[in-house]
C-alpha cells in the first residue's frame, strides 16, 4: 500500500508528465488562459489516460506478450487508444446526451495527445499489475492536470503583463514554464523508493 502511494506521488509530482518527462507539451502551450477550462480539460485527459491505459494493459498482456508481438506495440496502442476513446465518447453520449453536448461545446470532449501514448508506453516498461498500472496512469494524468491548471492561472496574469514584442506569445510561455519546472524540481527530494 505504501509503495503504491509513493509510486503515485512519484508519477504525479516528481516525474511530472509535462515538466519532467516533456509529454503533452502541445496541449500545455496551447492551453487556454482560463482556469476552469483547464480544469475541465485536465479531467477529460485524466479520464482518457486512465481508460486507455486499462485497455492497453489488457492488450499488452493478453495479446502482445502472449504471442510475442511486442514489435507491433506502437501501431496497436494507437489503434487501441483511438477505439477506447471512441467507445467512451459513445457511452457518455448514450448515458447523458445533454452532458455530452454541454462538454462538447467547451472542451475537446475526449483529448488525445502524446501524453496518452507516452503514459501507455511508460507502463509497458514498468511491468506493473493491472491495478498498479492503472493507478500509475491516473496519478500521471493528475499531475498533468495540476500543471495545466497552474499554468492557466499563470497565463491569466501573463495576459496583463507588458511583454516585449520579441518575447510575446510562446517564448514568454516557455520561460514561465521553465520557472515552473524549477519549482517542481523541488519535489525530486521526495524519495519514491
Amino acid at each position: 500500500m505504501k509503495e503504491l502511494a509513493l509510486m503515485m506521488v512519484g508519477a504525479a509530482l516528481v516525474n511530472n508528465v509535462i515538466l519532467a518527462r516533456f509529454l503533452g507539451l502541445c496541449s500545455f502551450m496551447g492551453v487556454t488562459t482560463r482556469i476552469d477550462t483547464a480544469a475541465g480539460m485536465g479531467m477529460a485527459t485524466t479520464f482518457v489516460i486512465t481508460v486507455s491505459s486499462m485497455a492497453d494493459w489488457a492488450v499488452q498482456h493478453y495479446l502482445l506478450d502472449a504471442y510475442g508481438l511486442g514489435f507491433l506495440r506502437t501501431v496497436t496502442f494507437i489503434l487501441v487508444i483511438a477505439s477506447a476513446v471512441q467507445f467512451t465518447e459513445m457511452t457518455i453520449r448514450k448515458v447523458s446526451p445533454s452532458l455530452f453536448q454541454m462538454l462538447g461545446i467547451y472542451l475537446p470532449l475526449i483529448t488525445t495527445n502524446c501524453a496518452v501514448l507516452g503514459v501507455a508506453l511508460l507502463l509497458v516498461e514498468g511491468k506493473l499489475s493491472f491495478l498498479a498500472s492503472t493507478l500509475f496512469a491516473f496519478a500521471s494524468a493528475a499531475g498533468y492536470s495540476l500543471v495545466m491548471i497552474i499554468f492557466a492561472g499563470l497565463r491569466e496574469r501573463l495576459a496583463l503583463a507588458q511583454v516585449p514584442r520579441l518575447f510575446a506569445g510562446p517564448p514568454i510561455g516557455f520561460i514561465v514554464a521553465s520557472l515552473l519546472a524549477m519549482a517542481f524540481m523541488g519535489f525530486s527530494g521526495i524519495s519514491t523508493g
Binding site: 496541449s27 496551447g30 485527459t45 476513446v85 453520449r93 453536448q101 470532449l109 483529448t111 488525445t112
Partner: peptide, 30 residues
C-alpha cells in the same frame, strides 16, 4: 476544439489525429 486549445493551432496539430473524425461534429449538434 482540440487539445491544442486554440482552434487556430489545431488545424496544424496532430491532436486532431487520433480518434477524431469530422462526422463527430454532427453528433454534437444541440
Amino acid at each position: 476544439t482540440t487539445s491544442c486549445g486554440g482552434c487556430a493551432a489545431a488545424s496544424r496539430c496532430g491532436a486532431k489525429g487520433v480518434g477524431t473524425l469530422a462526422s463527430r461534429l454532427e453528433a454534437r449538434r444541440f
